[in-house]
Amino acid sequence: MTAKIDLVADLGEGFGAYTLGDDEALLDVVSSANVACGFHAGDPSTMDTTVRRCVARGVGIGAHPGFPDLAGFGRRAMDLTADEVRTAVLYQVGALRAFAAAHGTRVAHVAPHGKLGNLVAVRPDYAAAVTDAAAALDPDLIVLAQDGELADAARARGLRVAIVGIADRAYRDDGTLVPRGEPGAVLHDPAEIAGRAVRLVTEGVLETVGGGDLAVACDTVLLHGDTPGSVAVARRVRAELRAAGVTIETLRG
């Protein structure tokens, strides 16, 4: 049984005059944030504001690099070379590290976003590219990943890995996520999501779309800040985890 967990949400995903999700409210609930780095969402001002708010609340800061796809929110496949993935991750995480340094803190982890996050779990070349970028920037960076190629590559390089359980997404029996274009891929009911989160942390399993239990020994529970009703979901998840005796804290404690 896992007695503690890092409760993470994807934040800073507005752009310019446009906002997405209620970051202020979510920052009062989560213990860490995956901060958009400008390629799928976010911009310099949003990144700066998000980091400042995280510091004010003691929320851990993670980089959330994605494909250069603002129009598609980083959720479309792009035919990039492995080296293009490596340099894109270097650029994005490096930018967030600059804002963290300006606010007297550091980026604790890196968590690939969207389609890039899906592909690094199954493509060894992309997994190696992200690992190379993380190791070059800071060998103390924690790599957030699902079980798969990225987790394996990061461990092989001596990087610390934290397995992520995604409470508000549906899983297939093979451990991959149900694609967002398919019905039921994104969950919305706070009670259902909270129940899945508690099972993830206390039992190490979650139910797949096939009806079976999938083993997921997670270190973090992820929620999506852009999902409608995300604040209510996050509050319910936090409350039920606490009621189950789980300590919520950042990966670095």
Rank of each mutant, 00 (worst) to 15 (best):
A153I: 05
A156P: 00
G210S: 10
G211Y: 01
G204Q: 08
E240F: 12
G184V: 14
R235Q: 11
P183G: 15
E207P: 03
V205P: 00
G225K: 14
A244S: 15
S230C: 09
A151I: 03
R236C: 09
G204W: 13
G211D: 02
L177S: 15
A151M: 08
G184H: 14
I248N: 03
G225D: 11
E207L: 05
H188E: 15
T247E: 13
I166K: 03
E203L: 14
A234E: 08
L241V: 04
V246I: 08
C218P: 00
R238P: 01
E207I: 00
A194M: 04
R180I: 02
A244D: 10
D174M: 12
A151K: 03
L223V: 14
I248M: 09
V198Q: 04
T220H: 03
D152P: 07
P228H: 06
A217P: 09
I248L: 15
L206E: 02
G175N: 03
A162L: 06
V201W: 00
E182W: 05
T176P: 02
A217N: 12
E182Y: 14
I193F: 10
L206M: 06
S230K: 09
T176Q: 14
T202S: 14
V198A: 11
P183W: 11
L206F: 05
G229T: 03
A170E: 04
E203S: 08
T220S: 10
D174H: 04
A154Q: 00
A162Y: 00
P179C: 06
D174Y: 13
R238H: 14
P183L: 06
I166Y: 09
L223P: 03
I163P: 07
E149R: 08
H224F: 15
D226Q: 14
A151L: 09
P179M: 10
H224N: 15
V209N: 01
L177G: 11
L223N: 09
A191I: 10
A162E: 01
E240P: 07
L150E: 00
E203F: 09
V205I: 15
A151C: 09
D213Y: 13
E192N: 04
A232I: 12
E249R: 13
V161P: 01
R238Q: 12
G204R: 07
L187N: 01
A234D: 15
G165W: 07
R199S: 07
E149Y: 08
R242A: 15
R238K: 11
P179W: 12
L187K: 01
R235C: 07
V216D: 00
D173N: 15
T208N: 06
T247F: 09
A153P: 02
A217M: 13
V237G: 14
V198P: 03
E207A: 14
L223E: 07
Y171D: 00
G195T: 06
L159G: 06
R169P: 00
A239L: 08
V209L: 10
G181M: 08
A217K: 13
L200Y: 02
Y171M: 06
G184Q: 09
D173H: 07
L150I: 12
G229K: 10
L150F: 07
G245D: 04
A153H: 10
E149L: 05
A185Y: 11
L159V: 04
R235K: 11
G210Q: 04
V178H: 10
R157A: 07
V209S: 05
P179A: 11
I166W: 07
V237A: 10
C218Q: 03
D219C: 08
E203G: 13
R160F: 11
V161I: 08
R157C: 07
P179Q: 13
L222Y: 05
L200G: 03
E192D: 06
V205M: 04
L222N: 10
